[in-house]
């Protein structure tokens, strides 16, 4: 999976596509590591995400920890009911900023 990553001022928008599971999360993690994202707010647009597994959750947790540490924010938008349910079940709906 190749996510689209756009920088726009102080915000970086990540648009993953399809599943966010063990394999794709690892790939996205590598992709993000290659980008200079320090000092930017993260916005994950889940418009095209089918579902997310715990591996994807762990990636989000890692990104959130990093941005918080830098004094920035991370938000997730356009989640589908499946993703919403995963967030609810895992309790991350409280930890993440879901737009």
């Amino acid at each position: 999976m190749e996510a689209v990553i756009e920088k726009n001022g102080t915000t970086v928008t990540v648009v993953p596509e399809g599943r966010l599971d063990t394999v794709t999360s690892a790939a996205l993690k590598e992709q993000l590591a290659c980008c200079e994202t320090a000092g930017l707010d993260f916005v994950f647009d889940f418009e095209k995400v089918d579902y997310i597994s715990s591996a994807g959750l762990r990636l989000l947790v890692a990104v959130q920890k990093k941005t918080r540490a830098e004094g920035h924010s991370m938000s997730i938008k356009n989640i589908n009911p499946v993703v919403r349910e995963v967030f609810r079940v895992s309790g991350f709906n409280k930890a993440f900023t879901v737009l």
């Binding site: 599943r19 599971d21 063990t22 579902y51 597994s53 715990s54 591996a55 589908n80 009911p81 499946v82």
Partner: peptide
């Protein structure tokens, strides 16, 4: 489709 997606999560978690 939602339930199919949830099935995908099941596979990912168990196989992981």
């Amino acid at each position: 489709p939602e339930r199919v997606s949830e099935t995908g999560i099941l596979i990912d978690e168990v196989m992981n």
